[in-house]
Structure formats: C-alpha cells, structure tokens
C-alpha cells in the first residue's frame, strides 16, 4: 500500500508543478502584453472589425496604447474581433459590446445605426466619409499571367475562370461587382451595356464563395480559377504570404472602396468609454496611423502619407460610391443588391 500512496504524491506533485509552470508562463505573457508603465486603471475597448484588418489593427492598437497613455495617463487594452463584415455587424446588433466598429462598407454600419445603436450622422462625424483608409478592387493572377489578363474586358474571355465572393453575402464582393459596373458604365455610357458586361463577367465566375477570405483561400490555397477579384490589400497580403507565386493586375478603372469606422454610441455610453473610443477613431487619421495603414496595404487618406507611399499604390481612375453613376449606398443597395435587383436578374439566369 505504501508505494501506491507515494506514487499518488508524485503525481500530485508533478501536476502542481505543471500547473505552477503554466500559471507562471501566463503571468509572464500578461506582463509582456501590458502597456509599459504609468498608473491608473486599465480601460478596455472592443473593436469589432472585418476579415482582413487583423494585421493592421494589431499594429495600430500598440501604437494607440502608447499614444493614449502619453496623452491621458490611462492604460488601454484593445480587444479585436474579426469576421465577415455583415456577420460582425449582426453580432453588434444582437448585443456584442463593441465600443467601435471598423467594417468593410458603410451599409453594415448603417444597419447597426438602424437598430438604434448609433446616431444617424455617423458618417459625417469623421473626415473622408468616416473612412480613414481606403482600398480598391484589383485582379490577382497566377505567376506569368497565363491568361494575359490586363483589364476588365479580358475577364470576359471564354477561357477565364473568375473567383469572387457572393455580393449578396459579402461586403468585399459588393465592391468587386461595383468596380466592374463602374468600368463598364464609364466605357460604354449605357446602363444596358453595363448590365450585359457584368452579366458576362459573372458567367465566367467558377466559385462564388460567401466571404472575401473564403474566396482568397479558394484561389490561393485550393488552386481554383485563373483570377481572383479582390481587395487590393487582400491581394497584396497574398503576395506577401506567397512571394513570387502571384501577380497583381491593376485595372484602368476601379472603385474607391471605403471601409467605414464608427463609435457605437449606446455601448460607449453604457460602458463609459466615449472619450477613449472617440480618440481611437480620431487617431486613425494621424500621420503615424496612416503610415501603419499604408504598411498594411491600405491606401492612406492623408495626402502627405499617400505621397510618400505612392510607389506602393499604382494610380488608376477611382469611381466613388457617391458618383452620379451610383448615387450613394442607399440607392445602390436597392437597385443592385436587394432581392430581385440587378445582381439577382443577371446572376439568377435572368
């Protein structure tokens, strides 16, 4: 009996030792992650964002922590949540306590506003339509560009297989669709011709995933299709991950994609975080943050920073959502993406 008892002591000892080591490691990591010095209670902010912003906000959050501690003496920890933009907006509507939302497109924030969580003028509260960084839609092709894709018309060639997400479910996909529409409208000056152009383009779509990141994985990891229609920042990220395997083709005309940001008024009122949340959004427009955005492949809105990084972002004709051609998101949503809208008509076999 004695040896059995001692065996149990050993086990308990080893177990406690492992547990102690684990707790030690955890405390160490916590200490490493905490902002360096200063006093005062830690405030936490939750930033609910979309799929491809993780690297950017990780870098930005560190910068903001330092900035805010210098400015107010307060320690701030920012928790980030990533996912499909529309889905993320839904979680906020259902009760996810987001102090700020940084989503892929304005309508997703508008839907949160319509649920009564923030004020109707959210897009006027910050510069540049509350879009501190922008992007555009480009083509990602495999090395050597075997299909010789140079501009939008090349996507209509019979041998081309396009990968792009579904505009009904994905925010990024709406920008893709609208970019094609912008090109065709500017080129042919006719709604009917634009519709035919975009229909032909979607006939060449081989995989219509539900989200941008899914589409990227389908194209880059699973090897489907010849060309991926996607965000410029997403395309650049793929090229960084797989050096030398892909090429980015910038078309002659594309859309100015404006990922929007907002403070969620009702949440910050409840959590008493309005000041720091507003500073978090405002600081996105600072020179330092704009540089971080550019380093993470977003086009800066600050002209000086944009100038400094101009080699990274080829010049092209960018059509905005407020161009008379589109007339703003409300009109676009109704005309193109609502049930029975133009996308349904051209893709539903109509």
């Amino acid at each position: 009996m004695y040896w059995q008892k001692s065996k149990w002591w050993w086990r308990l000892g080893i177990g406690l030792l492992l547990l102690g080591a684990y707790i030690g490691l955890y405390q160490l990591r916590l200490a490493q992650a905490a902002p360096t010095s200063g006093s005062g209670a830690t405030v936490t902010l939750t930033n609910v964002s979309y799929d491809s912003t993780r690297e950017f906000y990780q870098a930005y959050n560190q910068n903001f922590q330092k900035y805010w501690q210098r400015k107010s003496g307060e320690k701030v920890a920012v928790a980030i949540s990533n996912g499909g933009s529309g889905k993320q907006a839904n979680t906020v509507i259902e009760g996810n306590q987001a102090d700020v939302v940084t989503l892929a497109l304005a309508p997703d924030i508008t839907s949160i506003q319509q649920a009564g969580l923030l004020k109707a003028n959210w897009q006027q509260r910050y510069p540049d339509n509350a879009a501190p960084y922008t992007s555009t839609v480009v083509f990602l092709v495999r090395k050597g560009n075997p299909q010789q894709i140079r501009d939008w018309p090349d996507l209509l060639k019979p041998a081309v297989n396009i990968v792009t997400p579904n505009p009904k479910t994905s925010g990024g996909a709406r920008w893709n669709y609208l970019a094609a529409w912008a090109y065709a409208s500017k080129k042919y000056h006719s709604t009917e011709k634009a519709r035919q152009f975009v229909r032909k383009l979607y006939q060449n779509v081989t995989v219509l995933d539900s989200g941008s990141r899914d589409a990227t994985t389908t194209f880059a990891e699973n090897g489907q299709g010849n060309v991926l229609l996607t965000w410029e920042n997403e395309a650049k990220l793929v090229c960084q991950q797989h050096p030398g395997e892909y090429e980015i083709i910038t078309p002659s005309i594309s859309i100015k994609a404006e990922p929007s940001v907002a403070v969620v008024d009702s949440v910050v009122a409840q959590r008493n975080t309005a000041t720091v949340a507003q500073a978090y959004i405002q600081h996105l427009y600072s020179v330092k943050a704009q540089k971080i955005a550019a380093q993470n492949f977003y086009r800066p809105t600050n002209q000086k920073v944009a100038q400094a990084y101009r080699k990274e972002f080829p010049a092209l004709q960018l059509v905005t959502i407020n161009d008379p051609l589109f007339g703003g998101w409300a009109k676009v949503q109704k005309q193109h993406f609502a049930n029975g809208g133009i996308f349904d008509q051209i893709y539903g076999g109509g």
């Binding site: 609910v48 690297e55 980030i80 949540s81 990533n82 996810n96 990141r213 994985t217």
Partner: peptide, 23 residues
C-alpha cells in the same frame, strides 16, 4: 463574437488563425 483574448476558445482560435493565412 470572436473577441481575441476574451471569447476565443481553442477551436475558434484555430479557425481564426486559419482565416488569417496563419496555417
């Protein structure tokens, strides 16, 4: 709600990392 450091379980973390190209 996929909030890093707050509501990510191991399974969710695997999915998140996968979606971030961190295979």
């Amino acid at each position: 709600g996929n909030i890093q450091g707050k509501t990510l379980t191991l399974s969710l973390l695997v999915q998140n990392l996968y979606n971030d190209f961190k295979f």
